[in-house]
Design a protein around this nucleic acid. Structure first.
Lengths: 226, 226
DNA sequence: TGCAAAAATGCAACCGCTGCATTTACTCGC
DNA sequence: GCGAGTAAATGCAGCGGTTGCATTTTTGCA
């Protein structure tokens, strides 16, 4: 059997000669169960203390089968990563008329990273829980940062694709700057005890800071937004 | 025995009632040997294919003792992380008169991250080799990104300490922006086939881009530096 | 030289992860 | 409805990183 994580959710789409019906819904069901039981066990007894065997038996599958759904134990928590990245890439693919690169980038970030995932019910439910877990566990943090890194390289290419006149490395620098600012600002705000609303505000503020240029930092600041 | 990586290099400093002489030099010797043999084996036969047993026997110690020198197999390659971070923090601790926050930050980054480690001979020798290894191995990339993340939070606090009027979260955003821009720009340049000099140039350019503000990207650009 | 602390070692075990072979479940054409 | 073929689930055995514990060796110092 070739692992499911390669097929992703292609098979849920109608059309395309793949096997439609019952098989897929069952797969989605167990996938769903794996995620929920994993998150529950992680929060109950800690990430490291929870074994794959426990998660699997809770979801009523064999431990071996776990690895048909997720490549690693960490990946269970990042199930919606591809979806979110796809949304950001989609936004980058359609710049508005006369929209400057940095503005498009800002819009893509705010819409995908910061927006509540209204369509994905599962992601919305587990959002805060997952944030807490990732923050607490170094291994999960490292995994998230690595995913984010790969994402940024893709975003850079997408931005370069939308503005062919924009140098690829410049696009990469822009993406890195904005994502980096948001990431560290949010983490710092969170560590300072801010609630999630304040964290989001800090992230938005960080984006605008990068747009204006850091040189404006120590100074009276010309027309700061919001 | 309490693990050595907690004591770090404190014991090499003179003074402080610790045991001075022969013991420490021997420890440094084996540590050195571990690093060099690890890098050699990694490049010869790949990171994953190299076992801790191989590294240990090459350095003439027991496999068990490896973990007294490094917490994980990955950490062997990041032996100079603390040194470099310390240098950046030291620079941030001493701003020049009338130096704006972003300028100090720029100086700290260029001096610590981009500067050749002239003092540390071992690090200079292995720099390029290590870069190649980290780029090739996802696990190493993740570890490096995590170290970098933790570093940025410390840098943010240092910057805030140097400019008490500067909001901590703003400082964090600034650090994240610059480090993020440098990281992704350098990675992209490297992936495009640039040599190390071009990569460094791209990194410096990224820093200046962030200083000016990303809003200047699509435009004719007022007075770009260098 | 002898003693106490530090370091190195050996041993056993846990767990994440993988490859391979086998069995079970499903889909589709007839 | 049934049989063939494919996808999925499973069992098993093993590797390797990592840790805790007990033991032995080495080192610094009185």
């Amino acid at each position: 059997m070739q692992p499911l994580h390669l097929l992703a959710r292609c098979s849920t789409l109608p059309g395309m000669g793949g096997t439609p019906g019952w098989r897929e819904t069952k797969k989605q069901r167990t996938r769903h169960a794996l995620i929920q039981h994993a998150v529950r066990l992680f929060t109950e007894q800690g990430y490291e203390a929870t074994t794959i065997a426990e998660i699997s038996t809770a979801a009523e599958i064999s431990p071996r089968t776990f690895f048909s759904y997720f490549r690693t134990k960490e990946d269970v928590l990042f199930f919606d990563h591809e979806t979110r990245m796809a949304r950001a890439l989609a936004i980058l693919a359609e710049p508005r008329p006369d929209e400057a690169p940095a503005r498009l980038l800002r819009r893509a970030l705010l819409d995908s990273v910061l927006a509540e995932s209204a369509d994905n019910q599962l992601a919305a439910e587990l959002a805060t829980t997952r944030t807490a877990l990732v923050n607490a566990e170094p291994a999960l943090q490292a995994r998230e940062l690595h995913l984010l890194f790969a994402t940024q390289r893709e975003l850079a290419h997408a931005l370069h694709g939308a503005y062919p006149g924009l140098d690829l490395v410049d696009a990469a620098a822009a993406v890195g700057a904005m994502v980096g600012a948001v990431t560290i600002a949010a983490a710092t705000a969170r560590a300072a005890g801010d609630d999630e609303d304040a964290v989001r505000a800090a992230a938005r503020h960080a984006v605008d800071l990068v747009l204006d240029g850091l040189d404006t930092l120590g100074r009276p600041a010309r027309g700061r937004r919001r």
